[in-house]
């Protein structure tokens, strides 16, 4: 039976939709439109002289080796953050789902980091890993490891990945835990009776049943890694050393806000918008097919 609600007239449905549409228009369509317009201009910072340059900003961005470098960094960074945050969260959720003493305490503690603002999280990691004032950073140097993320690009990337993933683990943990708890006991018991060992039960029963959750989290984590990790990178490395941790979103900020090069920055954000829309579409088309709801 399909339940249908039919409104009389058109005013009421439009009115009910209006707040949502207004929010979308004001916070997405309007700024996005501005970005597209700005990306076609060369303008001085004060907005006193502007010149229409067509696609020149896009040409410059796409031929800029540093932008390509940022694209590569973003790919490494996003995939690593998503994989690490999802993997660790799943492991923790499976462990916390078992009947252990103090499970609630563990759960609460694991959810805590999510309440920490990105910049604050970055400062915590800085105090741990700073080569001269950080607890672990000093210990590493004392143990003979040449740890200096301010000069070693690989170490800097590792640090921002771990810090960003750490923050996201809590979020993933909540969803995985909820997903695990919604798996019917009877299915697991049936598998156990059929002689499936825990590991096999996990891969053949639990994991497929978790796939809607995993898929949702994959999308959210990639979007998080693309856009929401600005604070961590800004506070920890500022995109350096060299340009080793400069991601696409960070470069938009550097070029637009620090360097006041609005045209180039707008062109980059338009490209970023296209990339994320494309990525999400790919995920829904191809990955979603394998998802069992």
């Amino acid at each position: 039976m399909i339940k249908r609600v039919i409104f009389k007239g058109q005013l009421l449905p439009l009115l009910l939709l209006a707040p949502q549409l207004a929010v979308t228009a004001v916070f997405f369509l309007w700024p996005a439109g501005q970005a597209i317009y700005q990306s076609l201009l060369q303008e001085d910072p004060f907005g006193l002289r502007r010149e229409f340059v067509g696609t020149e900003n896009f040409d410059a961005v796409l031929n800029d080796p540093l932008w390509l470098n940022a694209l590569g960094n973003t790919a490494v960074f996003s995939v690593s953050v998503a994989a690490l945050a999802l993997g660790v969260a799943l492991l923790l959720a499976v462990q916390a789902d078992k009947a252990i003493r103090g499970a609630n305490l563990y759960k609460t503690m694991l959810i805590w980091p999510y309440a920490v603002a990105p910049a604050v999280a970055a400062v915590l990691w800085l105090f741990l890993f700073h080569p001269s004032i950080g607890l672990i950073g000093r210990a590493l140097n004392a143990a003979g490891v040449a740890w200096d993320y301010k000069l070693n690009g690989g170490q800097a990337m590792l640090l921002v990945i771990v810090a960003s993933a750490w923050k996201q683990v809590s979020y993933n943990f909540i969803f995985f835990l909820a997903g695990l708890q919604s798996i019917p006991r009877s299915v697991l018991e049936a598998a156990a009776i059929d002689g499936a060992r825990p590991f096999r039960r996990f891969w053949t029963v639990v994991f497929p049943l978790l796939s809607p959750t995993s898929f949702f989290l994959l999308v959210v984590n990639l979007v998080y890694a693309f856009f929401d990790t600005f604070g961590v990178i800004h506070a920890l490395t500022g995109g350096g050393p060299g340009n080793a941790t400069e991601t696409l979103i960070y470069k938009v900020y550097v070029d637009g806000v620090q360097n006041l090069n609005l045209g180039a920055s707008a062109a980059q954000s338009v490209i970023l918008m296209v990339l994320v829309v494309g990525l999400t579409m790919v995920q829904f088309r191809f990955v979603e097919r394998r998802v069992h709801y």
């Binding site: 000069l151 690009g153 050393p241 060299g242 340009n243 360097n259 006041l260 090069n261």
Partner: peptide, 21 residues
């Protein structure tokens, strides 16, 4: 003009030199 950016460029290129690149 744009010297904020130029100073960062100098620092970035120096960092790449100090890294041995």
């Amino acid at each position: 003009g744009g010297y904020v950016e130029i100073r960062n460029i100098m620092q970035e290129e120096m960092e790449k030199a100090f890294q041995g690149q």
